[in-house]
Design a protein around this nucleic acid. Structure first.
Length: 657
DNA sequence: TTTCGTGGCGCC
DNA sequence: AAAAGGCGCCACGAAA
């Protein structure tokens, strides 16, 4: 069905066109018994661009201008500036009527902000597209899907007109555009529906549609942020950082006066020498270290070539190996440089630049969450709240507002327990059955026969280096590493790396079998079934390329891509199950809040993969903590049937983890 | 001036 | 014949 003006009903003042006009009551009557309706809104800047690009997107900084709602036969275009949409409340909150949209988290937040209405039973064609074509890097814009499914080209200039529309009446073109924005997603849904069934992704879609509301709530509420504490941390770091920079400069001036690393200043006011190195530039520091013949090398992740590097881990390792061969003063230089680097990110990414993310209205941080990554996990941006340094100096700034407490809960050993449950390796299961806590010592004991007679605490105490090796080995292997990886990481011979690899899998033979079969299954079917509950999938989008490389005997590319896919086969099922579990836990918790009318007292403020954070009004902390743990454990039970997944909640004054 | 790729590093 | 998974943000520096 194509766009048809007869199907469009306008609700608002200024009936200037030959379009049907009607009332909000008629709209309610028409929609109230439908099973599926679509909604969309157009927004405008609220403060004339005072807050930059965010205006028009951020619910606190925008106004809704147009509100579109309808089904495939009839689309209502409402002038939100003049028409109260509250009569639609029951429909929007109904659990029986599906509200469909494209990126409907946007509508969810704006309608919540402007009308206090939380959309229920939502359905998002953008999220569905991601689920259906995960791995193919699908284009997700409504424009892209219109072209793909409907063969329709929609010009987007009209959308931009809304940003600055003010109180001007709609043009006919704008009204038609508004109607299209709900008609087309409804048509796209029909095309996607078959695919969902064919690919057995209904459960995944259901989970994500519920989880969408969780993210809507989190993004809208934001998280409390104490600028004084953050700034204090910054000032402390900055002072040391500057001191170290001066020390570095002095060192160069004293020791390398006549090199290209020192500029001679010849202006009238200053005479003397100046260190020309910008220590923040890895390129310039590499240049210096090469000159001193102390620059380590590493295979670059992007170019895959052996290149010089000042990566802190690599420099530290090289410092160890070079120890006797380099002058004391070089060691001193490297030492200062490493301390300087430690503070670099603290002063930039996690410095006062962070303040730009504070919402001018709420004074809180409202991160954007990307709902579905390849593995099924989520990501956070603007700001990224998933990579705040775990150091208290930073996390103290995420404290409780007055009258509130923070509740933090995380799964203990989430990915390890997922792996134990999917692989069912008896020796891993045994670790849990016997109630051990220290997985790395346990692994060390499995790898090294000489540790057989010791207890795990004894291993930790007497053989920390063997434990450390076991830790690094199990980490590498869970992500698809092999003997070569181990030898690289530990700086041992390839033979030794191979030995450790074999010792590890000799100790966990069922794990090896599970890994081998997972790879075989996925590589045969052309996709990874990421987890058995949602049946989320990752498709090998470049599978054709793989065949091509093989045909062309381009072995370099062939093995590179093949290896990448094989590693994904292992890693995605571990990360992915964990990701879905946390999503479901948050869904359960949101439901508990709704069922018990606790939405004004308890708020989810952040999700960090295996961790859920809340802000809770003081009287509700116990009940919130207990229920959060319960929701997390109930979600865990659905995936982890053999070894239970446990969550520990703490009630604190600031983010502690 | 803006845009883009890279190296580097924070988190799980 | 490659060689540990998933992200996002920063500064730099070259290209546009």
């Amino acid at each position: 069905m194509m766009k048809n003006e007869k199907n469009i009903y306008y609700i608002g003042p200024n009936n200037l066109f030959d379009l049907n006009t009607t009332t909000i009551q008629d709209c309610v009557e028409y929609l109230k018994n439908k099973a599926l309706i679509a909604i969309d809104i157009e927004t405008t800047m609220k403060f004339n661009g005072k807050y930059g690009k965010r205006e028009g997107l951020d619910p606190y900084l925008s106004n809704i201008v147009m509100f579109q709602v309808g089904d495939i036969n009839r689309q209502y275009v409402i002038d939100y500036r003049y028409v109260d949409i509250n009569p639609l409340k029951e429909i929007l909150e109904s659990n029986h009527i599906v509200k469909l949209g494209h990126n409907i988290k946007f509508e969810y937040k704006h309608i919540l902000h402007n009308n206090g209405i939380k959309l229920n039973n939502v359905y998002d064609t953008m999220i569905v597209e991601q689920i259906l074509f995960n791995g193919y890097s699908p284009k997700l814009g409504l424009k892209d899907l219109n072209e793909k499914y409907l063969g329709i080209e929609v010009e987007k200039a009209t959308r931009l007109e809304f940003l600055t529309i003010g109180d001007k009446p709609f043009t006919k073109k704008q009204i038609l555009y508004g109607a299209e924005d709900i008609l087309y997603p409804l048509m796209i849904e029909k095309h996607q529906a078959e695919d969902i069934v064919r690919k057995d992704l209904s459960k995944c879609v259901s989970l994500e549609m519920l989880f969408l509301q969780v993210l809507g709530d989190i993004e809208y509420k934001g998280i409390n942020f104490n600028t004084d504490i953050w700034e204090n941390t910054y000032n402390n770091n900055k002072a040391t950082y500057s001191t170290l920079e001066i020390e570095l400069n002095k060192y160069i001036l004293n020791s390398f006066k006549d090199t290209r690393f020192v500029d001679k200043q010849l202006n009238l006011f200053e005479t003397g020498l100046k260190c020309s190195i910008n220590w923040g530039s890895s390129k310039q520091v590499i240049d210096l270290f090469k000159y001193l013949e102390i620059c380590p090398q590493e295979v670059s992740k992007s170019t895959k070539k052996l290149s010089y590097t000042v990566n802190a881990t690599v420099v530290k390792a090289s410092l160890k190996t070079m120890n006797k061969d380099i002058p004391e003063t070089y060691k001193h230089l490297l030492d200062i440089y490493l301390r300087y680097k430690e503070l670099e990110q603290c002063c930039t990414t996690f410095g006062i630049a962070f303040f730009k993310y504070i919402n001018p209205i709420t004074k809180r941080l409202h991160s954007n969450y990307k709902q579905i990554l390849n593995t099924g996990r989520i990501s956070s941006s603007n700001p990224n709240l998933q990579n705040i340094p775990s150091n208290d100096n930073f996390r103290r700034a995420f404290d409780a507002p007055k009258g509130y407490k923070i509740v933090n809960s995380d799964y203990s050993g989430q990915e390890n327990i997922c792996l134990a449950n999917t692989s069912l390796d008896p020796d891993i299961l045994n670790f849990y059955y016997e109630g051990h806590l220290d997985m790395h010592s346990y692994n060390a004991q499995k790898i090294y026969p000489e540790l057989q007679e010791l207890s795990l605490p004894e291993i930790k105490k007497q053989h920390p280096e063997k434990r450390q090796i076991a830790k690094s080995v199990s980490f590498a292997l869970a992500y698809g590493g092999n003997g070569f990886t181990i030898s690289n990481n530990l700086g041992v011979s390839p033979e030794e790396g191979e030995n450790i690899y074999n010792a590890y899998f000799d100790a966990f033979p069922k794990l090896k079998l599970f890994f081998d079969e997972s790879i075989k299954k996925s590589m045969n079917q052309g996709f990874i079934e990421i987890d058995p509950v949602t049946k989320r999938k990752f498709y090998f989008g470049d599978f054709d390329k793989l065949r091509e490389y093989k045909k062309d005997q381009d072995w370099k590319r062939y093995y590179s891509l093949k290896g990448k896919y094989e590693r994904a086969c292992l890693n995605y099922i571990i990360q992915g199950a964990a990701g879905s579990i946390t999503k479901l836990a948050a869904i359960f918790f949101r439901k508990w809040l709704n069922d018990n009318n606790l939405n004004d007292y308890i708020f989810i403020t952040n999700l960090i993969h295996d961790e859920i954070n809340l802000e809770v009004l003081e009287n509700y902390t116990e009940i919130a903590a207990r229920n959060l743990e319960d929701c997390m454990q109930r979600a865990g039970e659905i995936w982890c049937k053999t070894i239970p997944l446990k969550a520990d909640a703490v009630i604190t004054d600031y983010w502690t983890h």
